[in-house]
Design a protein around this nucleic acid. Structure first.
Lengths: 158, 158
DNA sequence: CTGATACCCTAGCTCTCAGGTAGGTATTTA
DNA sequence: TAAATACCTACCTGAGAGCTAGGGTATCAG
């Protein structure tokens, strides 16, 4: 297990916001109260509030306070990648503790404090990290709202 | 952080075994005592013993007991993939707790106990898992023993 | 204005588990 | 036999995931 439920829950919130954004019949902004999402998906409201705070600080969602308030996506669902969402929730994406991304974008291995002792596994973790990031960047919120209908193609066990 | 030091240490052990296998001048089998690797890489010996036990049970290394005993790779370094190593150490590869691989190879989401409620994030985690596994399968122990000079940047496969 | 709604913030709680220690037994070589 | 080494089981401990608690603050309906 690698990502925590922070990513799990957070992504589900984003998907739910995107779904309801398409629902609004008039020109309404369609802000969604968090309690509604929490109940719909069976996630603890108080915990979601923490995650949503991170998403807001990352500029991925906007909020409206007060009665009739709630949250909405800050940008169209097609323009929000999972890389942004996951990074906002989990922090910098690193497949293993010793690997991180420096401010200049280069991959840094904390085992290599001694410069003439390169870490043999750095190549592996760099590759893994790259493939994860690329996959997350290639998937947007919009990709996840179009889940196929549960009716067809799912065989019901006897 | 996603993989633990189990993967980190275990991979380093495999690489070290591969390196010393190429050293033997005669036709010697070149078994390596674990204490030697532990000291060379600065890893705790008692902890390594646990990890090595997993690698042995997975058939990735062989052992010889008694004085002058030690460990050696069970197969050529080119034929041992990181997917095997990491899976032996960490268990089944899953990017998140709710996702796992069923016995038939299909990806299972534990949130989908209710068959008419498909999990919207399953697509994402499936994609991420697939990209991780593919990267691990494409990298062998042999790829890591040839560490480039500290100067060069690290290439990433397309 | 007043209350209800719902966002927003800070603290702290609990249980799991990564990461490691300890101490013993079995097996081989010299 | 003595030393070296693999092998096994049990235990310990700090940190962090995954919450809960309880307040504060902005906004809107009436």
């Amino acid at each position: 297990m690698m990502f925590s439920t922070k990513a799990e829950y957070g992504v589900r919130v984003m998907v739910e916001l995107a779904r309801r954004a398409g629902e609004s019949p008039g020109g309404a902004e369609s802000v969604v109260p968090l309690a509604e999402i929490a109940e719909h998906d069976g996630m603890p409201l108080a915990y979601l509030e923490h995650l949503v705070a991170r998403l807001r600080k990352a500029g991925l969602i906007d909020s409206r306070r007060g009665s009739r308030g709630g949250y909405m996506l800050a940008r169209p669902a097609e323009e929000i990648t999972m890389a942004e969402v996951v990074e906002a929730l989990e922090g910098s994406i690193a497949p293993i503790e010793c690997i991180s991304q420096g401010p200049d974008g280069s991959i840094v291995c904390s085992r290599e404090s001694d410069p003439n002792h390169t870490c043999p596994t750095k190549l592996l973790w760099t590759r893994v990290r790259f493939s994860i990031v690329r996959t997350l960047e290639d998937t947007t919120v919009a990709d996840l709202i179009a889940v196929p209908a549960p009716t067809a193609s799912i065989p019901v066990p006897a």
